[in-house]
Amino acid sequence: MWPGRAASARPVAPAPQRRIGPYTRVQWAGAVVVGGLALVYAAAMAVLAVRWLVSVDPLRGFLATYPGEYPLPVGAPVGIPAWLGWQHFFNVFLMVLIIRSGLRVRTEKRPTEFWMPRRDRKGKISLALWFHQALDVLWLVNGFVFVVLLFATGQWMRIVPTSWEVFPNALSAVLQYVSLDWPTENGWVNYNSLQQLAYCTTVFVAAPLAAVTGYRMSGLWPRNVPALNRAYPVEWARALHFPVMVYFVAFIVVHVTLVFATGALRNLNHMYGGQDAVNWTGFWIFIASMIVVAAGWVAARPLLIAPIARLFGTVSGR
Rank of each mutant, 00 (worst) to 15 (best):
I99M: 13
G123C: 04
V205T: 07
E185K: 10
R19S: 12
V278I: 15
R5K: 13
M116L: 08
L311H: 04
N269A: 12
I99P: 03
F260A: 12
T107K: 06
G273W: 01
P302Y: 05
F114V: 03
A173S: 14
W86K: 04
G61N: 08
P117L: 05
A173R: 01
V137A: 02
V293M: 00
Y23M: 11
A207D: 07
V26Q: 12
G79R: 00
L304S: 07
R118M: 08
A198D: 09
I159V: 15
I291E: 04
Y272H: 09
R216P: 00
P226I: 05
L180Q: 10
A7M: 12
R158M: 11
F242A: 13
V292G: 02
S316Q: 13
A128E: 14
Y191N: 07
T107S: 06
K109T: 15
V234W: 04
L150P: 02
P243Y: 06
A277E: 14
P67T: 05
D136Y: 00
S163M: 04
V145S: 10
S316D: 11
W130D: 08
Y215A: 07
N190P: 03
L268I: 03
T213P: 05
A49P: 06
L240W: 15
F286R: 00
F114T: 03
V246F: 09
F251K: 00
G68Q: 01
N279I: 08
A38V: 07
G61F: 05
S172M: 03
A300P: 03
M271D: 07
W156S: 08
S218N: 02
G143Y: 00
Q87C: 14
L150I: 02
R100A: 07
A300G: 09
V160R: 01
R10M: 15
P67N: 07
V147A: 07
